[in-house]
Design a binder for these strands. Structure first.
Length: 498
RNA sequence: GGGGCGGUAGCUCAGCGGUAGAGCACUCGGCUUUUAACCGAUUGGUCGUGGGUUCGAUCCCCACCCGCCCUACCA
């Protein structure tokens, strides 16, 4: 920390409020914590919805509410103010007649942003707004800093990310996004546990990073004097659990990848991974489709969404295409015949300036061409299937064609959302594929996988036939909240230090 | 890594060679059904940082820092 960060900055407004706080302290006020509320704002609106003032005011319904004062309208001998709690907003009305001159004067000293508690009775104003006629109002927390402009709120993207608390105070849309996020995660938990899956937590610190091809963050454990890696995926641990007999298992947690930042990448991101024994990748595609459909309806009210102005239909059956079929559909010039001609595919990659190795298989070249030309066009939900074995070191080979695997990726709005496959449970095949990855790592490929001997040992005890999948939660939230950047759906996205 | 745009009052923004502006917020005064309350009067700035050009720079030039977007890399 530099001096700049430890010396409290000040301006006329902050100085003024510090003086108010000082006077409060001198009067014996000391951040009281005995106020208890009876209702949230939204509860009061819900309970008394449709009730007019003739039915409301004579009933003298006592309520106690608390929240941050967001607006204030003082009129000499009476004041209106708007309090905001986690559920929404409600208006209070403080009058000299009801609270006396002293309390009104005290109330008028309170600032926007202060946390207040208020007791009183309900009525409706002549414009019909449900309001608490206050007979006691308490200052619970003094706010020393002025809030952002009351109408526009906080719009500066940098400040929204760095000071998310301010963004949450002032922008209802931001609160909505994270409310939806919470509901989505809860909905996924319910969906899976209802189907007999068990939620677990596996290590975040791995002696050997595995389960994906990505560069890891490296850290060090002092007492053990050993290098550790923040996990890039939980996959190998979850499959160890399936070996252990937890036949339906899932984890929702953070992965860390030491790679670039973008609107679709944050170095730490949330992944759902789940594994089901005695199931294959077709079962997972079915499960994924019904889960996404259900979650969309639960959290947005519909399986027909709009993302950045375009309709996304999660209601109709998703497309299911092989890598080559997808290219042929979106680029009719790429006929099946041409795509199976290694010379043609290689020439296309050359034309696009994409480098490849002489010993890369046709399947890998097709995948590279697909990623360059077609991936971003898959706006409509589409399962892409038949991934080549050479880029799928943890997936089961296809029974009819050992060059490809029983694997899929799900694309929606041109982005990868999920990746799943029938698991490779042949311990000897897995050992051979690890060896191959280890060779590539020694040859300088920073992303090739390590040889994980304990994982092989686990497989040697026997992994039942299993299928597993990962779903990027942040990207799912982006889709469901119509957010253009992953930073909009992560409360505290990675930023450079101030 | 490359490109584009941006950084001016606490916040939202205007100004773009001649000593810094508005709205909101703050302070003071008025107002007992307002609601982005209103009316009146104030207060508030190292114009991202450092160089340069100029009689004079917030404005032009260079470098740097920070951010957003695109692109590249990357599951």
């Amino acid at each position: 920390m530099t001096d700049k960060n430890t010396i409290p900055d000040s301006n006329a407004i902050i100085d003024e409020r510090r003086q108010k706080l000082q006077k409060l302290r001198e009067s014996g006020w000391s951040h009281p914590n005995q106020f208890r509320r009876t209702h949230l704002a939204a509860e009061l609106h819900a309970i008394h919805d449709g009730q007019d003032n003739a039915g409301l005011e004579p009933a003298s319904i006592n309520v106690a509410i608390a929240g941050r004062m967001m607006l204030k309208r003082a009129m000499g001998k009476a004041s209106f103010a708007t309090l905001q709690d986690m559920s929404g907003r409600i208006q209070i009305y403080v009058t000299k007649d009801a609270v006396g001159e002293d309390m009104l004067e005290t109330f008028n000293q309170y600032d926007l942003g202060d946390i207040l508690g208020a007791e009183g009775t309900l009525f409706r104003t002549r414009t019909g707004e449900l309001t608490v006629r206050v007979n006691h109002v308490y200052l619970l927390t003094k706010s020393l800093r002025p809030l952002p402009e009351k109408f526009h709120g906080l719009t500066d993207q940098e400040l929204k990310y760095r000071q998310r608390y301010l963004d949450l105070i002032t922008n209802e849309m931001t609160r909505k996004v994270f409310t939806v996020r919470s509901k989505v995660v809860q909905g996924i938990r319910n969906f899976l546990t209802e189907r007999g899956f068990m939620e677990v937590e596996t290590p975040m610190m791995h002696p050997i990073p595995g389960g994906a091809t990505a560069r890891p963050f490296i850290t060090h454990h002092n007492a053990l004097d050993m290098q550790l890696f923040l996990r890039i995926a939980p996959e190998l641990y979850l499959k160890r659990l399936v070996v252990g007999g937890i036949e339906k298992v899932f984890e929702i947690n953070r992965n860390f990848r030491n790679e670039g930042l973008s609107t679709r990448h944050n170095p730490e991101f949330t992944m759902l991974e789940f594994y089901e024994a005695y199931a294959d990748y077709n079962d997972l595609m079915n499960l994924t489709e019904s889960m996404l459909r259900k979650i969309a309806v639960e959290t947005t009210g519909s399986a027909r969404l709009v993302y950045q102005g375009r309709e996304v239909d999660l209601e109709s059956p998703f497309d299911k295409l092989t890598i080559c079929d997808a290219m042929s559909r979106y680029h009719p010039a790429y006929t099946a015949e041409k795509l199976n001609d290694r010379v043609f595919v290689g020439a296309e990659l050359d034309k696009l300036g994409i480098g490849f190795q002489k010993d890369d298989g046709l399947g890998k070249l097709q995948l590279m061409l697909f990623e360059e030309t077609t991936e971003q066009l898959l706006f409509k939900p589409t399962f892409i299937i038949n991934y080549p074995a050479e880029v799928s070191p943890l997936a089961r080979r296809n029974d009819r064609n050992p060059e490809i695997t029983d694997r899929f990726e799900l694309y929606i709005v041109g982005r990868e959302l999920a990746n799943g496959f029938s698991e490779l449970n042949d311990a000897e095949d897995q050992a051979a594929r690890f060896s191959e990855q280890a060779l590539q790592k020694n040859a300088g490929d920073k992303e090739a996988m390590h040889y994980d001997a304990d994982y092989i040992r686990a497989l040697e005890f026997g992994l039942p036939p299993t299928a597993g999948e990962g779903i990027g939660i942040d990207r799912l939230i982006m889709l469901l909240t119509d957010s253009p950047s992953i930073r909009d759906v992560i409360l505290f996205p990675q930023m450079r230090p101030e």
